[in-house]
Amino acid sequence: MAKSSRRAESYRYWYLVLVPLLAILTLVEFYPLVDGVRLSLTGSSGQLSLSNYSQMLTDRSFWSAVSVSLAYTIGSTVICIALGLGLTYLVTQKVRGRGYFEAIYVFPLATAPIVVGTLWSPSSTWDDIQSFLHFILHQPYFNELSIGFFFPVMVFSEAWEWAPLVMLVALSIINSQSPQIFEAAELHGASALQKFRMVGLPMVLRSPVMQFVIVLRMIDAMGSFAIPLSWSNWVGYPYNVGSPVDTLSLFMYKLIFIPEYGFPIGLVSAVAVALLAVTLVVAFVLIRMMGRALPLSGGG
């Protein structure tokens, strides 16, 4: 009894170790967040005003950016999960050298998003694909400047980069389970595909860890910037907002840096607050999920 109270006593000053952490968060997170809200509520002559929000809500480029962001997020997340699970199926096959394949499949993860934007651009990878389709399969050329071509490619390149992450998480979930589950399925005569579809897949998709990672992925896709930025150059929209590749982030970036728009601080801040509102809702979902994935236990 005496001992435990002595211990409790010794924890008294431990909250001090959280102070440096809070100081950094205040500088680079809390202060900018609060200041962003303040800037968004400041009118052109410095008074408290909602004019920035009304300007934002009546701006067609804003709504265009919202829909582009949504399509981009949903599309890339769905493709990313599908590709990642496909890769998982492949590397769980019992063949020699699968470790090497697993290593190769991780390659895209190391590529910077801004480089991914260049990789999948019309003059890089699509060059080869076009030649292949045109000269070997005798298909007509894609018009690379049509939205029906470049938007799916852009969304796909985001998925290409992050599919290995889904694979790695899926593998860690499968490997943390008892292999006897798969052995049992094998005894019942399940083929490799059946084992994956009926045992591995439900195991992975029901895992709170996987769901958590998918939500994180959606958040990052929602804020995606580098890939759309590079595409806005390849398809000829570097200097105007409201283009079909302008996500919310790119929309804000263009408002800040293209001289023609004159850095409308209030408007950009209003868009930032809108973006923040969406993320806070998702963050709430995340916290609920994290509670299931990893209960916040006292430990020790």
């Binding site: 680079v28 997170e29 900018p32 967040l33 962003g36 994180l216 958040i219 929602m222 804020g223 910037f225 919310l248 982030s249 804000m252 970036y253 930032a272 607050v273 973006l275 923040l276 993320t279 806070l280 998702v282 963050a283 995340l286």
Partner: peptide, 8 residues
Amino acid sequence: RAVSPFAL
């Protein structure tokens, strides 16, 4: 972690 850098 969920806050986009563009919000800041």
